[in-house]
Design a protein around this nucleic acid. Structure first.
Lengths: 337, 337
DNA sequence: ATTTGCTATTGGAACGATCCAATAAGCATG
DNA sequence: CATGCTTATTGGATCGTTCCAATAGCAAAT
């Protein structure tokens, strides 16, 4: 059980100096090809592994990006996280994925740990009710920070925000439902007072207003369980309700399950549109209509933005909105087959 | 834009030596309380952040655990990852979650990157068809490595394996279906020849054999999409098939959607049992019966095992099987309400 | 033959913590 | 008042890289 070999050991074995080994490590084309191969071979023979801690200490980049997600169990975020990780890996950056589980205190700890580890940048979809702890730390760290999918901190110059154009999406959904003949359309889910709820609802409210239809809002957590509960609530208290736009697909799936239990089938008896268009939408029956946010594409763009910021120092614009579009499927169309 | 303060700066400000600051950092109770507070205050005033790279270089632990998951999009694994991360965070370890996406080459890269970053241990649910690259690296690194949920490498002394007692679970499921009156029971999903497929199928095969019933296996990927396909296949080619055990819940959900599309309802016309018991099982309609693998509990146990290995050097037994149990719900019971 | 201009290589000084051995301070004891 | 003992504090060496300035080797130009 001996210690790991260092560049000194490699240098000794290859019969060169440690500086040369270092140059080989960073792929400098200043070293002669045969010297390079000699060094490479020595490394292989010794089973050399690069010590990033030492390199970092001396001042070079860690090659680490921190990703903090408020709810990694939500497939929408999982997709975002995994896609971002792959896009960054392709450029040689490792991504530390972590889940704050909607807990601001845990989130602050995670961020502190990331900063200690010297991450080069952070991408964060923040938990609510944060207080400034998390973002103040990030500001002090002086590294690129991208705020995605949720805007919690207002300092958009420090923490540029990017998300989807939800308002337009919900307007499109509302117009679609009206065109399908729905007259009493509910908006289900999304916690009250939160920016994203307001956004996702605003297009719906505007379109209903324009069509002279009454709005019906039921706010709450963005989970399947809430959707199931609300199905009972709508059936009991709003029997005339003939359509719904849900805050996200999970709520919509819950609503669908709740309706099915009562023998009502979306598409036939009721028109339903979700939000996010997760993969599952096309894999349930009836298939769920949804406002599609191409999250994989969004993740790749986020990676690109971050890379140019890190490498070229080009700060992205303070706010960006990716377009969304409605994918109409059986759950909101007249026919179920 | 000045550089981060170091312990030297803190020491100067507090009027002590850097050694004292270092002692305060590691919470040594050897320093006088007032000195400690003085140092703490200086840190706060300067906005000092601990430089882990420097500490690591000198030889102390990085406080990092690497987690490599073959398919992080699968909610079963997501739950495992997030729970493990929280359990380790409670003990002061940061967890690097990463997704190999079932790609052995990417997996080897991720592991290499983790080792470079000096992780103290690795937990891995390996991709298939690995070749030895990944595990050879891990063996050389000489750190604790736990192989979970999938056994790919045979060196169980180096990479202790822990998983669930799937065989018993599928036997229980098969007995349950037989007791419910099913006579033509299929096993759907799971890629051919893989250890986990063999295991999850073995209990089913044994019970059917014991009951003198014919087996019917349809192997394939463990996805919703495959489940949907197989619904059509079963309906067309095996109309007498009256029940199924699925390789996992995703396949079962797909099967359910496929059956629903054809107007057949699990519970009423068909008996269905999934595997894993993900949260969603209780949130679809009809609710899905499933062999419950308490993955959160498993994750916490894994964290515990790993911590004692890292801190006390106690190597866990080469193989461990966590118990599973059938949760019977509407999809496999006579009544759907 | 000397100078110039390259390219390829090298020693040494950082980087910011930890940890050991040494020292200083305080205090009771003989 | 010297001695030992404990407790609190400190300087210096060290970890494995990177990077700078210096140097060696060598061909072309003067």
């Amino acid at each position: 059980m001996k210690r790991r070999p260092t560049i000194m050991d490699v240098a000794a074995r290859a019969g060169v100096s440690k500086s040369t080994v270092s140059l080989v490590l960073q792929g400098s084309k200043q070293v002669r090809a045969e010297t390079r191969d000699l060094v490479r071979q020595a490394m292989a023979e010794l089973g050399y592994v690069y010590n990033r801690a030492a390199a970092t200490l001396r001042g070079s980049s860690v090659g680490l990006v921190g990703l903090v997600i408020n709810d990694l169990r939500n497939p929408f975020f999982t997709e975002f996280a995994t896609t971002l990780q792959m896009a960054l890996a392709a450029e040689g950056y490792a991504t530390v994925i972590s889940n704050s589980d909607e807990d601001p205190a845990l989130q602050a700890k995670l961020v502190a740990s990331m900063i200690e580890h010297g991450v080069n940048a952070v991408v964060i979809s923040p938990a609510y009710g944060d207080g400034p702890a998390t973002f103040d730390q990030l500001a002090r760290a002086g590294i690129p920070v991208l705020q995605v999918l949720r805007q919690i901190d207002d300092r958009l110059d420090l923490f540029p925000f990017s998300s989807f154009d939800y308002a337009t999406g919900s307007a499109e959904a509302a117009r679609h439902l009206i065109a399908q003949g729905a007259r009493r359309i509910a908006f289900v889910g999304g916690l009250e007072g939160r920016a994203i709820t307001v956004e996702r609802m605003s297009g719906y409210l505007a379109e209903l207003d324009r069509a002279g239809l009454p709005a019906l809002q039921v706010q709450g957590r963005a989970t399947r369980a809430f959707g199931i509960e609300m199905a009972d609530h709508l059936l009991a208290d709003h029997p005339d309700c003939d359509a719904a736009i849900c805050f996200n697909d999970l709520v919509a799936m819950g609503l669908m399950a709740g309706f099915a239990r009562a023998g009502r089938q979306p598409g036939r008896d009721f028109r339903l549109v979700g939000f996010d268009d997760i993969e599952e939408c096309a894999q349930v029956w009836p298939q769920l209509s949804s406002v599609s946010c191409d999250i994989a594409d969004f993740a790749r763009e986020t990676a690109g933005t971050l890379l140019t910021w890190m490498k070229e120092g080009r700060v992205p614009p303070p706010e960006r909105r990716a377009p969304v579009h409605l994918v109409a499927r059986a759950s909101s169309l007249g026919e179920t087959e």
